[in-house]
Design a protein around this nucleic acid. Structure first.
Lengths: 184, 184
DNA sequence: CGCTGCTGTTCCATATATGGAACGCTAGCT
DNA sequence: AGCTAGCGTTCCATATATGGAACAGCAGCG
């Protein structure tokens, strides 16, 4: 988990604020006024050229109606595909395997194709909200909120939300080490 | 979720920082030095008399090894028990349920007892490294790295590493809303 | 055309967050 | 006892985050 204040993370946070503001149809001036902060502050924040205090951030998130945490979620390690955004939460490595934990957001209306991983890689997905069809191509399974599924990820596989709403899931990708791998 | 910058929330956040620091056996001076911030800043923060910038907060959470979000949520980001440390990675809330995603570290040699959660709460655990016996008291199951288990958490349940090594796992706690639950 | 009302950006005086230094304190040691 | 090394707090000069004002650009309108 990246934990640093960098120009990049500032820019990423600025974009997030701007997106939230525009989704609500607010102008920069409007939001600044209703949040009780200066336009210069908000402008600079969205541009990623400021290092805001908590007070300022709370004033903004309060007006946007989102938790402050939603501005912080690390864009680092975020992979965006056709239908899936995968945010890396944790990596754990020991003698036997490397495990990566992702937070998945699956947008409706499209299907995400993922290529085969190396032999031995297993994916485990737990649906948190919504529902999706996931798994090896041709053997996808329907997973609803609260359900769990795992599959060998050494073949092409897909992700697709089934309703017209975004689905949320956690995804563990486990890659064993010391494999006499691939061509075995 | 608190959505304002008040003296109270500042004090609460200060207490969280202090707790995390003390759990790690760090003095205020040590943490300030390793985080590259002034002692005065950290002292004031813990006392709740400051309004920190993101840069300052990231410097601190980076040293403490916790996500910044864990300083913001009232439901303390990290819960330390006899054998288990649970670090909150994500919270997701929709119309039907609240889901919390934790990173669990299970220390060997002790058994962690967890009281019953409200009716409807389900826990799902995926072992990432090591092995543990987990589940409702009297019906614990052995889970090895790569395996997944889920159980209704409305009864007392336990966690215990089985080898003499720390075990790592991801834990999802799902609490449905709008239940005709409990006291009906 | 000018005028009005909005947009988002930049400039800059002011408010304030920061961190070094000095402080009082306790613990361990000679 | 004195001396040293650590602790956490407070003081205060400096760095910097803030927000009002001025700015340029654009759209609608007479």
């Amino acid at each position: 988990m990246v934990q640093a204040w960098t120009p990049e993370s500032a820019v990423a946070m600025g974009r997030r604020i701007q997106r939230l503001r525009q989704e609500r149809g607010l102008s920069l001036s409007e939001l600044a006024r209703s949040a009780g902060i200066g336009k210069a502050t908000l402008s600079g924040l969205e541009g990623g050229t400021r290092n805001p205090t908590l007070e300022t951030l709370y004033a903004i998130t309060g007006q946007l109606g989102v938790p402050l945490a939603s501005l912080l979620t690390e864009a680092a390690g975020e992979v965006r595909g056709a239908a899936v955004t995968a945010r890396l939460l944790e990596v754990f490595e020991d003698a036997t395997a490397t495990t990566e934990l992702y937070w998945l957001t699956i947008r409706p209306g499209r299907v995400q194709h993922s290529p085969a991983h190396p032999a031995g890689v297993v994916e485990q997905l737990t649906m948190i909200a919504g529902a999706a069809r996931v798994g090896p191509r041709g053997a996808e399974r329907l997973v609803r909120a609260g359900e769990h599924v795992s599959w060998a990820a050494d073949v092409p596989h897909t992700y697709a939300a089934v309703s017209d709403q975004e689905a949320q899931a956690s995804l563990l990708i486990r890659q064993p080490h010391g494999e006499a791998d691939a061509t075995t």
